[in-house]
């Protein structure tokens, strides 16, 4: 039997204990990490494997709209697309979820009308996370109460970068508790690190461990709102973290790269990373997601190409 989180109980007893633990994790060599990610990116995925990968990728998308200009109409259109990504081909899988702001959760929920597409809501003063703890928790509870199946929270990068690791940990724990529903179930919690702001790979590995120890169901790269979002390298690093965590605790945690993944080719590279780093245990939308919007249309065009033999064009997929 695997050991459990109790093995790490001592780690979170104090700021200094947590710091010692995090700084004792193996370092990350940036060049080696990026070279490995690039090398896996040269895998050539053809024919049947490609068809499988495209459908898998579609089913892993958290179809996202996170704009100030989001309206109920926009959210309803997005929801419809999540259920029927390709209106001309009903064999196309549904996306995993739609991802919206908390005030749009009810709209999305209604639009999905019971289809097997989750509603994910960002929370905790997304994207900057600059708000008081009670506000973040209220934001979370609101979204859960409105019917969110999943919460995408952001960590306080300021606290992390200032070295207040325990505070970062406690925030995630508190949000996790706020994900609980009255019936005893809970929304699944995705923890966004905003890797582009954490800047170093060592930081990303440390943040991953904070998230995993605090009870994250998913660890997620980014908000999509900064210059550098998901990359093969930072996603590979986070996959290594969930792999190591499972080996040590038996607890499986999902990974969600978000932002900047726009093409089928990119998406397949990420699936190869999953396949060769953590294996097929993670090759489902229970454990791996893409935070994306424009990616879906590219996947659909590639899917049409595979089924018809003709290259498709933007007029043959829906603009939402």
């Amino acid at each position: 039997m695997p050991t459990t989180l109790t093995a790490f109980a001592d780690v979170t007893t104090s700021d200094s204990a947590l710091r010692r633990f995090l700084h004792g994790l193996p370092g990350v060599d940036a060049v080696g990490l990026e070279a490995r990610a690039a090398s896996l990116g040269t895998r050539s995925i053809k024919t049947t494997a490609k068809a499988y990968a495209i459908d898998l990728a579609i089913s892993m998308i958290d179809l996202t709209t996170l704009e100030g200009a989001d309206t109920p109409g926009k959210v309803r259109a997005l929801s419809a697309k999540a259920v029927h990504p390709d209106p001309t081909d009903r064999t196309t899988p549904m996306t995993a979820a739609v991802c919206v702001y908390p005030d749009m959760v009810a709209t999305a929920k209604a639009a999905l009308n019971g289809a097997d597409v989750k509603v994910a809501s960002v929370a905790t003063a997304f994207p900057a996370g600059r708000a008081a703890l009670p506000v973040k928790l209220a934001d979370t509870r609101d979204a859960v109460a409105a019917g969110a199946d999943e919460i995408d929270m952001v960590i306080d990068r300021g606290a992390f970068l200032a070295g207040r690791y325990l505070e970062t940990y406690e925030l995630i724990k508190a949000v996790k508790e706020a994900c609980a529903r009255p019936d005893g179930s809970a929304a699944r919690l995705k923890v966004i690190f905003e890797t582009g702001e954490l800047s170093t790979y060592d930081n990303i590995r440390r943040a991953s461990w904070i998230g995993m120890l605090a009870g994250a169901d998913f660890i997620k790269t980014s908000t999509g709102k900064v210059g550098v979002n998901a990359t093969p390298a930072n996603t590979l690093l986070m996959l290594e973290a969930v792999r190591d965590f499972k080996a040590q605790t038996g607890i499986q945690i999902g990974v969600k790269p978000a932002g900047g993944i726009r093409t089928t080719k990119d998406a397949i590279k990420f699936l190869v990373l999953v396949n060769e780093t953590v294996g097929e245990d993670w090759l489902s939308n229970t454990w791996f997601r893409f935070g994306a919007s424009s990616l879906l249309n590219d996947l659909l065009m590639q899917r049409q190409k595979l089924s018809t033999g003709r290259y498709s064009g933007p007029d043959y997929v829906t603009v939402d």
Binding site: I45, K46, T47, A49, K50, Y52, A53, N275, E280
Partner: peptide, 10 residues
């Protein structure tokens, strides 16, 4: 066999 077995790519 993996669900995601790569097809031959010669």
């Amino acid at each position: 066999a993996s669900l995601f077995e790569y097809a031959p790519a010669p």
